[in-house]
């Protein structure tokens, strides 16, 4: 293969006292995962533009009074970063609790039970109970699509579906309506999904969704297997297109 001259600038930094090197432009999250160091994420999905919204990947940077999201913070020379202080662990736990209390997450009857990123993170981060009162707000289940189903009760507003549809599929079926706690994912201009003219029925959103909000029909509890590994492949393919 012909060697293409790539100007890569290498920086060195510390992650949890471990000296690591990174190429300029890499995010803290990328560097940490390269090193096999774990940082929890929900809205992040490799292959999509980082969104910086779930705030689970917040890290401490020495000398900065503010916490920074690992998914959008670029590695720089001399950074000293803490990935998992007690303070960070406490915040991560609270954020997960807030997500559980926000909508109606009932794992026992969920098709994603046992295959859910939210559930996994809760287990890994020691969320044994939720201290915040559940909101028990009413949400709709959109089963109008002939292949797929959207259950708003289980949506965590990570917008992975919005981004995968816009950035990878190019259809931009999904977007958001409403503000604050009332924000919801909508298809087209707030149409039932089955009536969406822009949906190509590709199913990428189903596999990008970390929870049981977007699923294939005819799946029962625990049956919805999600694969999102195709995304980095697709992105790389496009970026390297001659």
């Amino acid at each position: 293969m012909a060697a293409t001259p790539v100007s890569t600038e290498v920086v060195t930094l510390k992650l949890n006292d471990r000296d690591v090197s990174a190429t300029r432009g890499q995010t803290i999250l990328e560097v940490a995962r390269e090193q096999g160091m774990e940082i929890p994420t929900l809205c992040f999905l490799e292959g999509l533009t980082p969104w910086g919204a779930c705030r689970l990947c917040m890290i401490e940077l020495k000398g900065s009074p503010k916490l920074l999201p690992a998914c959008t913070t670029k590695a720089a020379e001399g950074m000293e970063i803490v990935l998992d202080s007690d303070r960070l662990k406490k915040y991560r736990k609270m954020i997960l609790e807030l997500l559980f209390a926000e909508r109606n997450h009932v794992c026992a009857v969920c098709v994603s039970n046992g295959r859910c990123e939210l559930q996994d993170l809760a287990q890994k981060n020691g969320v044994t109970h939720v201290r915040f009162p559940y909101r028990y707000a009413k949400y709709e289940v959109d089963s109008t699509h002939d292949l797929f189903r959207l259950d708003h009760n289980r949506c965590i507003m990570c917008t992975r579906c919005v981004r995968v549809c816009h950035e990878i599929e190019g259809a931009h079926v999904w977007d958001l309506k409403g503000r604050g706690i009332e924000t919801e994912v909508v298809a087209d201009n707030n149409l039932p999904w089955g009536q969406s003219e822009s949906c190509t029925r590709c199913g990428k959103c189903i596999h990008a969704c970390p929870v049981g909000a977007l699923v294939e029909k005819t799946t029962a509890v625990n049956e919805m297997k999600k694969r999102s590994g195709f995304l980095p492949y697709l992105t790389t393919m496009r970026e390297n297109r001659p």
Binding site: R55, P133, M157
Partner: peptide
Amino acid sequence: CMSESCGKCVPCRTGTAQMYG
């Protein structure tokens, strides 16, 4: 603040709603 939150990040979207409660 709760009703003017854009709904993007979790702490602001659901945190302010819990604070209000």
